[in-house]
Amino acid sequence: MNGSVVYAIAAICLIVSFIKSREKTRLGVKKALKSIVKLVPVLLPMMIIIGAVLSLVDAQFISRVFGNSSGIYGVILGLALGAVAFIPSFVAFPLGANLLQYGAGYPQVAGFISSLMAVGFISFGVESRFFGAKTALIRNLLGLLACIVFVILVWGLMK
């Protein structure tokens, strides 16, 4: 969803809230600022590390890994790379389509795309800060399981 839409919704909420109660609005904004300040030390390194990783792993490298003949290894690598990488989805989908055009297989692309979304190695720090390491780990494993089921289905239905 577009960022400006979110800003607009937030602005409307703020105005409505302010009309209804100044005091409550002030409290809500104060809470918002407090949680942002608390998150900054966790978010900053995440952003920077994502930038560093993306600069090293380029499209060429990815398409070499996902060749149609790469089979199960390509799938496993796809799942692993997707889990570690942090590529915005508006880049990931065209990238997936490109990979297919250049001879990558559907199961490999499925593994990469799905784990890219569902498994977050780099955001693990933020996630465990909220829910504890154990819960964050189980959540990510559940995401991985969903990816594996998806890959198996794609393998069977689209190969």
Partner: peptide
């Protein structure tokens, strides 16, 4: 930032 404002409210 807007998400946090919405959450706070």
């Amino acid at each position: 930032p807007p998400i946090f404002i919405i959450i706070g409210l």
